[in-house]
Design a protein around this nucleic acid. Structure first.
Length: 463
RNA sequence: GGCGACGUGGCCGAGAGGCUAGGCAGCGGCCUGCAAAGCCGUCUACACCAGUUCGAUUCUGGUCGUCGCCUCCA
């Protein structure tokens, strides 16, 4: 099965044709660091990192680049509101973003460039755009001339003549033109020298600059939230292709939004749950499972119920892994048995599903199929420990792709006092003193252990 | 108003022109003193109306509805 992804520009699932065979460069629009990110902001990050894991596991060489936008109107505004330097605010929020997303346990992109480190490239690009006649300077600002780029609007499906732009309040000469460079304004405490005077880059040029610097003039995959399609990606595409005459991105990969209380989770609507808070409450696996339950292009309902569903399906995985670990003992994974064969089949279904536009729900379904088979084999009791170990290790490998391998974390065995209580309960049961036995079971539950009376005797499972 | 995506069973969520998705919840059974875990079985489906077809939930058209975007936005 060849890798296919949905390209927003072509509006269909297309085969991925890398610039260099076997290699893929992926650029994902990162956050503007003016405040803590919310759960929805994590989706493109999760998509990029998990997609990269799948690709690497299936033999691709992948380079993930994700920027931090540390120059922006909102940063100035937030800094003024706090009475601190905008640079300090951006630095603080950058660190916070890194810390929050690191907690997801998916590692870091290969490169995370900042706008403040990219000014020379940005300025050079703007100069070239002006020289080529695609942009014009106007009293300290520089604008991209949209009329000059014929295919403007094809990415987002917007028709130029049907757009209803706000009236011209700035120095641009056509309503749809967008800023490549903005002259500094009073109250802005960070500005850079440029041929057009002191100022700062516009919102879109930075991504073109950083993407091209890291991955070249043509990149394989450019990702981000669907809400960035217009104007951000439309503008990025216009200025980049006007500059190079080449396809900027071969595939535009857009993730759907998180719904929270019926609307898109959005800072401007105020219906947000901070990623850090969600991680505190739910832990990374629940959030990653919630994301994996939906295909990346679908919107996801973020609600107590959907989180509960995610938690429970993780419970099932965790329990299966625990039972398998218990059954396999210290056996080394070794192929050959029927369970190992089943696992291999599930693995290829898993990979095929992910190769097909990263269909995580289908991939997950394959995994649950393996879980069922593992449980059934363990129940029957004649499973070869090495076979179970093999299936378990395949399951963990697959879960790793989705960031869910933590579900296999070897929990500490029950402590001696819990085991003593379990023995006491067993004695009570043998004496048919069930009142006493049930009281001890409650006591164990309070200690965080659930009693399971399995055919082979009682066991303690973490609550 | 324009553009785009989508409407699947109690909830979430895949999918294919006729052949079991999966998870959670429910019900029945096995196991259990009971429970838990697990297994087996099982009920609620494809928004509506036409059309194409031997046959459509899957294709086409329309209707209704939902969501996103239309220069803050992951």
């Amino acid at each position: 099965m060849t890798l296919q992804l949905y390209d927003s520009l072509r509006r269909s699932v297309v085969p991925v044709e890398p610039l260099t065979p076997g290699q893929l460069g992926l650029y994902v629009c990162g956050p503007t660091v003016y405040g803590p990110i919310h759960v929805g902001n994590a989706r493109p990050f999760v998509l990029a990192m998990t997609l990269a894991r799948h690709l690497r596991r299936t033999g691709w060489q992948v380079r993930v680049v994700s920027n931090l936008t540390d120059i922006n109107d909102k940063i100035y505004t937030a800094a003024v509101a706090e009475g601190i330097e905008s640079e300090a605010l951006a630095a603080r929020e950058s660190a916070r973003y890194i810390a929050d997303t690191t907690r997801l346990g998916l590692g870091r992109p290969d490169l995370e460039p900042k706008v403040t480190d990219s000014l020379p490239v940005i300025i050079a690009m703007i100069e070239q755009l002006i020289a080529a006649g695609h942009a014009y300077a106007a009293d300290g600002d520089v604008y991209f001339s949209v009329a000059d780029f014929p295919s403007y609007g094809t990415l987002s499906g917007q028709k130029i003549d049907e757009m209803q732009p706000e009236e011209i309040t700035s120095k641009k000469s056509a309503p749809l033109d967008f800023a490549l460079w903005k002259a500094t304004k009073p109250g802005e405490d960070a500005a850079w020298e440029s041929p057009w005077g002191l100022g700062r880059p516009g919102w879109h040029i930075e991504c073109s600059a950083m993407a091209m610097t890291a991955l070249g003039e043509e990149i394989d995959i450019h990702g981000g939230g669907i809400d960035l399609k217009f104007p951000h990606h439309e503008n990025e595409r216009a200025q980049s292709e006007a500059l190079t005459g080449r396809t900027f991105s071969r595939i535009w990969l857009h993730n759907g939004m998180l719904r929270f209380g019926g609307d898109k989770m959005s800072k401007s609507l105020g219906n947000i749950d901070r990623l850090a808070d969600a991680l505190d409450r739910e832990g990374p696996e629940t959030l990653l499972s919630l994301f994996a339950r939906a295909q990346y292009r679908s919107s996801v309902d973020y609600s107590p119920d959907s989180l509960e569903d995610a938690r429970r399906s993780n419970d099932r995985l965790r329990e299966a892994l625990r039972r398998a670990a218990r059954t396999s003992g210290g056996a080394l994974a070794a192929g050959g048995g029927p369970l190992a064969e089943a696992a291999a089949e599930v693995d290829s279904r898993f990979c095929a599903a992910l190769d097909d536009d990263f269909a995580t729900p289908e991939a997950l379904a394959a995994l649950f199929d393996l879980v069922r088979q593992m449980n059934a084999a363990i129940d029957v009791g004649d499973a070869d420990p090495a076979d179970v170990a093999q299936a378990r290790s395949v399951l963990i490998e697959c879960l790793y792709v989705l960031g869910l391998d933590g579900l296999a974390a070897t929990t500490e065995g029950p402590p001696a006092d819990a085991l003593a209580l379990l023995q006491e309960r067993e004695n009570a049961r043998l004496e048919r003193n069930f009142e006493r036995a049930d009281a001890l079971r409650d006591e164990l539950l309070a200690l965080g252990w659930i009693v399971q009376d399995l055919p082979g005797g009682p066991e303690l499972a973490p609550a």
